[in-house]
Design a protein around this nucleic acid. Structure first.
Lengths: 275, 275
DNA sequence: TTGCTCCTCACGTCACGTGAGGTGGC
DNA sequence: TTGCTCCTCACGTCACGTGAGGTGGC
C-alpha cells in the first residue's frame, strides 16, 4: 500500500490531482482509513493512472475518459470519441492559425505606425427587416443630391409609418444602395421595423436586408459625412489585409443623432477569400 | 441613450456579456438609473466595444486588454502584448498539432485492432538519488545469472543501509544497466535513498540516476520477468510511432512485491526526433 | 519542540450561460 | 391580464492550484 504522496510521486502528478480524481470518480484509492481519512493506493493502480494520463493527453476530459478506463475499452467507443476530438483539434488548430495571422497583421500595422482600424472588426451582421424608400432619380450617386433625398424620404417614411402605427427609433435609419445596370448606385433609405405587421404602401416598400459578413466600424462626427469616405477606404484595406474581398456598396446606419452630431455604424460587406 | 438590449443587439453580444464587462470594468454604461438600476449606453460606446472585440479576437483576456482600451493605445504597449500572445499562440498550435498526431496514431492502432499501449505514456522521469551495487561478473547479460545476482545484492544493500540507519521501502528497488565497451550490459541494483546522509561504502556506491524522457508502463505478474521482454518490444515500437528514438537499456523499478507477484514500472529512455 | 505528511473545506481561475425570483411599462 | 425587458443574486463550467486551519507520528 502506498500513501497518497508516494503514489503521486511515482505517477508524476500532484496530491491534489489524486484527490480530484477521487472526487470525480475516475481513480479511487484502494483503501481509505476510516479513522484518519488517509488514502492508500496499490502499486498496480499506476496502470490506471497511466491510462488516464494517456487519454487526457489525447485531449479527452476526465468526464469523457471515465468510461474508457474500466476494463475492455470497447475500441469502437474510443475510436468514436477520438474521431470527434480529432475534428475539434483540427478546428482549433485552424482557428489558432487564423488568430496568429491576425496578430501578425496587427504587429505589421503597428510597425508602420499605422494604428488605424483599432475599432474595426469583421463580423456577421444579422438580417434585418425594414421599411424603405428608394431614390427616384435616374442619375448616379452624388453627395449633394443624396442629402436632398434624405430629408424628404425620411418625412415620407415617418408619415406612412405613423399612419400605420409602426413604432421605431426616430433617431435611427439606414442608408444602403443597389447597383444599377450601368454601374451607378440607387440610394435607399430604410428604417428597421422588426416583425411589426406592415406590408408596405405604394410609397414605402418592406424588405429584408440579408445577413452578411462585413467589416464594421463606428463613425462619429458631423452629419455632413465628410469623414466617411476615408473610413471606407481604410475598411477596404483592412478587409484585404485580412483575407477578405470587399463586396459592393456599404451600408450606413445612423444610430444616434444629437443636433449635427451623428454616430454611424459603417458596414462593408465582404467575402472570405479561400486559398 | 440605448437600453442594454438595444446596445447588445447593435454590438452583437449578449446582455449578460455587457453586464460582465461592467463588472470587470472594461465597458461601463454611460448612465445607470439610480432607482431602477437600468443601464443606458451611448451609441459611440460601440467603438469601444469593437476595440474590445478586436483585441479579444487577437487572444487577449479582458484583464490584459483593459488598459489598451483607453485613449492613446501606446502602440508599443500593444505591440509588447502581441509579441507575447504570438509566442503563446505558436506554442499552442504546435501542441495541438502534436496532440492531433497522437490521436491519429491511436486511431491507427485501433484500426489494426491493436489496442496495446493503452497504459503507456511518455513523460519526464525525475532524477533520483540511490544507493547501489554493481554486478561484479565480467560476463554479459543473462537472465538466470541476473536472478542469481539480485538476492545477494539486495542482502548487501540491506545490511549496509541498516547499519547506516538509512530508511527506505523494503519492497522496492530499481534494476538498471550500464553498457560495457564490448556492448554487453552490467546490471546494477539500486534503492532510492532521497537526501538522507549516506555517502557510500566500499560495497555500496551512491549515485544519481539522471532525469530522462522515457516511455513508461506498468508490468504486473510473477517475479520471473517472463512478460517483461515483449513489453519492452511494445514500448520500443510505441516510442518510434510517436516520433521518439529509444535510448539504451531500460530501467525496471519494482514498486510492490507480494509473494511471487510483483508490480514493476518499466522505463525506456527516449530522445525526441526533431524534423 | 520542530518538520513532514495527511486531512477537510473553500476560494480562485476565465468569460460568460443559465436559471431563479422579482419588477415596471405597454 | 399577458409579454417583454430589465434587475440582482448565484451556481456551473474544467482541472486542478493555493492557502487556511488542524492532526498524528518521528
Amino acid at each position: 500500500m502506498l500513501t497518497i504522496g508516494a503514489f503521486a510521486r511515482l505517477g508524476g502528478v500532484s496530491v491534489r490531482a489524486l484527490r480530484h480524481y477521487e472526487q470525480v470518480g475516475v481513480l479511487l484509492p484502494a483503501r481509505t482509513d476510516p479513522v484518519t481519512g488517509y488514502r492508500y493506493y496499490r502499486a498496480h493502480q499506476l496502470a490506471r493512472l497511466h491510462r488516464l494520463q494517456a487519454l487526457q493527453d489525447l485531449g479527452l476530459s476526465l468526464h469523457q475518459l471515465a468510461p474508457l478506463l474500466d476494463d475492455g475499452i470497447s475500441g469502437e467507443q474510443l475510436s468514436g470519441m477520438l474521431v470527434l476530438t480529432r475534428t475539434q483539434l483540427a478546428e482549433q488548430v485552424a482557428e489558432h492559425r487564423a488568430r496568429l495571422a491576425r496578430v501578425e497583421q496587427r504587429l505589421r500595422y503597428i510597425a508602420l505606425e499605422d494604428d488605424m482600424s483599432i475599432d474595426m472588426i469583421i463580423k456577421r451582421v444579422p438580417a434585418i427587416r425594414v421599411a424603405q424608400v428608394r431614390y427616384g432619380g435616374a442619375e448616379g450617386l452624388d453627395f449633394s443630391r443624396l442629402r436632398g433625398f434624405l430629408e424628404p424620404a425620411l418625412a415620407t417614411l415617418n408619415r406612412v409609418l405613423d399612419d400605420e402605427g409602426v413604432t421605431r427609433d426616430r433617431e435611427s435609419w439606414i442608408m444602403h444602395y443597389v447597383e444599377r445596370p450601368d454601374g451607378t448606385l440607387t440610394p435607399i433609405l430604410a428604417v428597421p421595423i422588426d416583425d411589426q405587421p406592415f406590408e408596405g404602401t405604394p410609397d414605402v416598400e418592406v424588405s429584408v436586408l440579408a445577413d452578411v459578413e462585413a467589416v464594421v466600424t463606428i463613425y462619429r462626427g458631423t452629419a455632413s459625412h465628410d469623414g466617411v469616405g476615408p473610413l471606407y477606404g481604410q475598411m477596404w484595406r483592412y478587409a484585404e489585409d485580412h483575407g477578405y474581398r470587399p463586396q459592393g456598396p456599404g451600408r450606413d446606419r445612423v444610430i444616434e443623432r444629437v443636433g449635427d452630431q451623428v454616430v454611424v455604424e459603417l458596414t462593408l460587406p465582404v467575402d472570405e477569400v479561400d486559398a
